[in-house]
């Protein structure tokens, strides 16, 4: 890791509507198992880890839990904005299933920058993004929005 905490920082002044940021993710069976076993919160639900139980529930394959898709998109946003940025909210809609080993494009796209650029008097600028997971079948199984507060160069 870099020694300079701000080397990866992105600033409000550098952001414009239409900016796109992408990451690839391919949630593997092992990663899904690790996620559901962190606390066991989802471990009892075989649809996430077990082919037979998934098929009994009408699914072709085990699926990636919604919260895991949400945190992939959250991570996309935190990586994009850098350590001084703050996630204010993330809103996601689970529209289709994400299957194990799906190769996903995680896409964030800036849709609005608050012209006043002073989030609650902190001097930060407020930025709105659309976020989505896109699979290789041309579908966007998870779509949503994020609102973040970003520092100014000052």
């Amino acid at each position: 890791m870099t020694a300079d905490p701000l080397a990866a920082q992105r600033y409000f002044e550098d952001v414009s509507v239409g900016d796109v940021f992408e990451q690839a993710q391919q949630p593997s069976h092992a990663q899904v198992v690790a996620f559901v076993n962190i606390s066991g919160a989802l471990a009892g639900d075989g649809r996430f880890t077990d082919l037979e139980k998934a098929r009994a529930a009408g699914l072709e394959k085990p699926i990636v839990p919604g919260p895991m898709s949400a945190v992939m998109l959250t991570r996309l946003v935190t990586d994009w904005m850098g350590p001084m940025g703050r996630v204010l909210s993330i809103d996601v809609s689970y529209r289709r299933s994400v299957l194990h080993d799906d190769l996903l494009r995680c896409v964030a796209l800036v849709t609005d920058v608050n012209g006043e650029g002073d989030y609650e008097g902190t001097g930060e600028g407020e930025v709105h993004l659309d976020v989505a997971l896109e699979n290789e079948r041309g579908e966007k199984p998870v779509q949503g929005t994020a609102v973040v507060a970003m520092p100014r160069r000052g």
């Binding site: 529930a57 009408g58 839990p65 919604g66 919260p67 949400a70 959250t74 703050r86 996630v87 204010l88 909210s89 993330i90 809103d91 996601v92 809609s93 689970y94 949503g144």
Partner: peptide, 12 residues
């Protein structure tokens, strides 16, 4: 007979 998540909103 089958429950799934449809959407989530996270506020931090």
């Amino acid at each position: 007979n089958n429950g799934m998540m449809a959407g989530q909103r996270f506020e931090y």
